[in-house]
């Protein structure tokens, strides 16, 4: 709800269904005030659906689906396929010494990333294509996967350490 935004220093937009999240943000009158805070530089970390919400373009989304346009990436929903293709894998992340356990669930994929975007990790979509799965632009961090489903807090620490 809009009043919940009054005291926050940063926001994490977690996984879920981006269509539902987008609709409920609108119906509760939270979309506009959050958009305003984000455009004033509120730090944000979006995972999976949260990445979709922070991107500047949603491919394969619903026509009425809105996003906050806080990181210059275009994102394709369910880029890795349906649930039976959902997977987990250890990925190398720039800035972390050990690999990170990444859980991808009906995950979105980054199709294009603008020049301002730092790509911190990638995975192979197929033999030919390697796509970004962890990106940062200023104080906005996004991941295709779900660090919240593992006990590994390193990405959350990375996000918090830069506040």
């Amino acid at each position: 709800m809009p009043e919940d935004l009054e005291t926050i220093d940063a926001i994490i937009l977690p996984g879920g269904e981006s269509t539902t999240i987008s609709m409920l943000l609108e119906s509760s009158g939270t979309f506009e005030p959050l958009q305003e805070l984000l455009s004033q530089g509120l730090p944000a970390f979006g995972t999976c659906a949260g990445m979709i919400m922070l991107s500047n373009k949603v491919l394969d989304g619903r026509t009425d689906q809105r996003s906050f346009d806080r990181i210059d990436i275009s994102v394709r929903r369910n880029a890795f396929g349906r649930q039976i293709a959902s997977f987990e894998t250890d990925i190398d992340v720039i800035g972390l010494e050990e690999p990170f356990p990444a859980v991808f669930i009906r995950a979105p994929g980054v199709e294009t990333a603008g020049p301002e975007v730092e790509v911190l990790a990638t995975v192979k979509l197929d033999e030919q294509t390697e796509i970004p799965v962890l990106c940062r632009q200023n104080n906005v961090l996004v991941s295709s996967f779900h660090p919240e489903l593992t006990g590994d807090l390193r990405l959350h620490q990375m996000f918090l350490s830069e506040l």
Partner: peptide
């Protein structure tokens, strides 16, 4: 899966994870 040598589909974490994402 097709995403690398240490990549696995159908794990407990992946299966329960979708249910987690539907919470609420």
């Amino acid at each position: 899966s097709n995403s690398g040598s240490n990549s696995q589909i159908g794990t407990v974490r992946v299966k329960r994870g979708l249910a987690d994402m539907l919470r609420g």
